[in-house]
């Protein structure tokens, strides 16, 4: 992942085997219960689909399908444009089976709208492995102190 992308990471442990969780996150009639209201999606790498949220909605492109451990798609890119790293959000699920349980992790990352292609950035990124989550935590703390 490029250091200039934002990233949100969340994890949960589910009391169901990995195959069951896999179906929950990949089958359109299931996705429509936890994500969008309307889901038109073929679970195949490179497939183009649609996710509707009430009146709004937009295209979605499946990126990785590696059952039952990895599933990712890009969304929120402008209609008519090809979804790439610079114009969309990448949602990536990782499933780790632990017997009757599954550890499900989701990472949403995206939007490197302004590429800062200078060496300073690279150098800085290498020196300060400053995660997005950490920044968020720090901000919340700082703002709490102020109020």
């Amino acid at each position: 992942m490029s250091m200039s992308e934002y990233q949100i990471e969340r994890e949960i442990v589910i009391d169901a085997p990995v195959e069951v969780v896999w179906r929950t996150i990949t089958e359109p009639d299931q996705i429509s219960q936890w994500f969008a209201d309307k889901v038109e999606l073929e679970v195949k790498a490179g497939a183009h689909g649609y996710m509707g949220f009430g009146e709004q909605g937009g295209p979605v492109v499946v990126e990785t399908v590696d059952p039952p451990t990895r599933f990712s798609f890009r969304w929120n890119h402008p209609a008519g444009e090809e979804a790439v790293a610079g114009n969309s959000f990448l949602v990536a699920f990782t499933l780790v089976g632990e017997g009757e349980h599954t550890r499900l992790r989701v990472v949403e990352s995206g939007l490197d709208l302004l590429p800062w292609a200078d060496v300073d950035k690279q150098q800085y990124a290498e020196e300060h492995n400053d995660g997005w989550g950490e920044f968020l935590d720090r901000l919340v703390r700082l703002l709490a102190e102020r109020t």
């Binding site: 969340r10 009391d15 969780v21 179906r23 929950t24 936890w34 499900l104």
Partner: peptide, 17 residues
């Protein structure tokens, strides 16, 4: 939002299981 979605996924998967 993601926490809520993961909670829903958990609920759905556990019910299906």
């Amino acid at each position: 939002q993601w926490d809520r979605r993961l909670d829903t996924i958990k609920r759905l998967a556990e019910a299906a299981y």
